[in-house]
Amino acid sequence: MDAAELEWIGWTTPITTSLGAAVAASDFGGATVACRQHILADTIPIFTPFVEAGARVRLAPCNPDSTDDRTVAHLRSIGVEVQARSGMSVGEMEESLAWLVSEPSDALCDMGGDLIAAAAAAGHRPTGALEATTTGLHRLDGLELPFPVLDWNGIALKNLIHNRHHVGVETWPAFTSITGLALYGREVVVVGFGPVGQGVAARARDLGAVVTVVDLDPVRLVQARHDGCRVAEMSTALRTASVVVTATGFDGVLGEQQLSQVAEGAILVNVGHSDREIDVDWLDRHPITPIRRHLDRYEIDGGPVYLLNRGSLVNLATGLGIAAPQLFDPFAAVMLLGLDAILSGQADNLPNGLQPYPQHLEARIARALASGTT
C-alpha cells in the first residue's frame, strides 16, 4: 500500500485514527498483543499505534475467507507478525492458532473465542482479553477463564449499530456482486432473527424480496411479523426458498437434514461469525463445480444448490470492492481502546471471566460518532 492509500484509510476511519495517536505516544515496550480476527484494511489503524508504541503484535485470522493479502503485506512491513493468507485450509487455520498460542501474551483480542479458549487451556495468564462475537460467547460459555475477558459483543453500540444495520447494508451488495442477481421477487429465508438477522431481513425487504424468518424464539417471531416478514418452521421455509441466509452464531444450523430439504437452485449464504453455520463438510461430499469467485454449485440428489464464499461471512468476502472501513471505524476504536486499557493496567483489578466492556470507553466512542466525526 502506498502513502496515498494509507492516508485514505486514515481519513475513512477518523475515530480510530484520532484515538490511535494517543496510543502511539504510549510506552508499551516489552508488551505482546496476540489477535485472532478478520484481517482487512480497517485493522491497520488498530495495530499501527501499538507497533509505534513499542508493543509486539502477533496476528492470525479467525476466518479463512476474510483476509486481505495486501493488508497482510502492509502489516508485515511495519513489524506485525502475521500468519495468514486469503483462502487458508482448515489445517492452516489450526496451525495459525497453534502458532499464536505457542507463547504467552499480555493482551488478547479475539473474534470467535478460539484464541481465548486455547490460551486458557495452554496455561497462559494474560492481563486481559477482548471478545467480539456471539459465536465466541457461546464457545466460552461454561469455561473457567483464568483472566478477565471484556465482552464487547454485548455493548449497545455494537448491537444497535453494527449488528442491526451494518451487516445488512454490506450483505446484499456482496450477494449481487458475487451472483449478478437482484432480490426483486425472490423468496429469502433468514434463519436467526437477532440484531444481525433483523438488519439483513430489513434490507432484503427494501430491495424487493419476500422475506420469511425462522427462529426458535417465539418473541422474535412476533417481532418479525411486526416488521412485515412471514414466519415459518425451518422445513417449510426451506422448500420454497430462493435464498437462505444463516445469522445465528451457532455451528451446524443448516446440517444434513436441513440441506436435504433445500429447494432446487437455492443459494446458501452465511452472515454469522462461524464459517460452519452451514455444514460445508457435508456439502463437500457431493459433486462440486466452481462457478466464479466465491460461488460454488453442489449437486444434491440431482439438483443444484449454490453456496457463497465457502460458508464464510459473505459481507466480508474479499475482492468485491464493496467494503466500507468507515462503517467499522467505531468498532475498530472499541478494540483499540480495549487493548490500550488492558496494557495500561486498567483491567488489573477486574475479576476473572467474562466482564462487561468498560462503559466509559463505549461512551467516548459514541460521543465521537454522534458528533459526526465519521
Rank of each mutant, 00 (worst) to 15 (best):
residue 1 M to G: 13
residue 5 E to A: 15
residue 10 G to P: 02
residue 11 W to R: 10
residue 13 T to G: 11
residue 14 P to R: 00
residue 15 I to H: 09
residue 19 L to A: 06
residue 24 A to S: 15
residue 28 F to M: 13
residue 31 A to D: 05
residue 31 A to F: 14
residue 32 T to M: 09
residue 42 D to V: 13
residue 44 I to P: 05
residue 50 F to C: 07
residue 56 R to D: 12
residue 60 A to N: 03
residue 67 T to F: 07
residue 67 T to S: 13
residue 70 R to H: 08
residue 72 V to K: 04
residue 79 G to P: 08
residue 93 M to S: 13
residue 99 W to R: 00
residue 101 V to Y: 07
residue 104 P to I: 05
residue 107 A to E: 01
residue 111 M to L: 04
residue 114 D to T: 10
residue 114 D to Q: 13
residue 117 A to T: 08
residue 122 A to C: 10
residue 124 H to A: 13
residue 125 R to A: 15
residue 131 E to S: 07
residue 133 T to Y: 01
residue 133 T to I: 00
residue 137 L to A: 07
residue 140 L to A: 12
residue 140 L to N: 11
residue 141 D to Y: 12
residue 142 G to Y: 09
residue 146 P to F: 09
residue 148 P to S: 05
residue 148 P to K: 05
residue 149 V to Q: 04
residue 152 W to S: 01
residue 153 N to D: 11
residue 157 L to W: 03
residue 161 I to Q: 11
residue 166 H to G: 02
residue 170 E to R: 14
residue 174 A to L: 04
residue 181 L to V: 04
residue 184 Y to H: 13
residue 188 V to E: 04
residue 188 V to M: 12
residue 190 V to W: 06
residue 199 G to S: 08
residue 202 A to C: 11
residue 203 R to F: 12
residue 205 R to H: 12
residue 206 D to N: 11
residue 212 T to N: 04
residue 212 T to D: 02
residue 213 V to C: 11
residue 217 D to V: 14
residue 221 L to E: 09
residue 222 V to S: 02
residue 223 Q to R: 14
residue 234 M to I: 11
residue 237 A to L: 01
residue 243 V to I: 12
residue 244 V to R: 01
residue 253 V to M: 08
residue 254 L to M: 13
residue 255 G to V: 02
residue 258 Q to A: 15
residue 259 L to E: 02
residue 261 Q to C: 10
residue 268 L to M: 09
residue 273 H to Q: 03
residue 276 R to H: 14
residue 281 D to W: 05
residue 285 R to H: 14
residue 296 D to L: 06
residue 300 I to E: 00
residue 301 D to T: 10
residue 303 G to D: 00
residue 305 V to R: 10
residue 311 G to I: 07
residue 311 G to S: 03
residue 311 G to F: 05
residue 312 S to D: 09
residue 315 N to A: 06
residue 320 L to D: 00
residue 323 A to N: 05
residue 324 A to D: 13
residue 327 L to N: 06
residue 328 F to G: 01
residue 330 P to L: 01
residue 330 P to S: 04
residue 335 M to W: 07
residue 335 M to A: 10
residue 336 L to W: 04
residue 340 D to F: 11
residue 341 A to L: 11
residue 344 S to E: 02
residue 352 N to G: 14
residue 353 G to I: 05
residue 358 P to V: 06
residue 359 Q to S: 15
residue 359 Q to G: 11
residue 365 I to H: 08
residue 367 R to L: 14
residue 369 L to F: 15
residue 370 A to K: 04
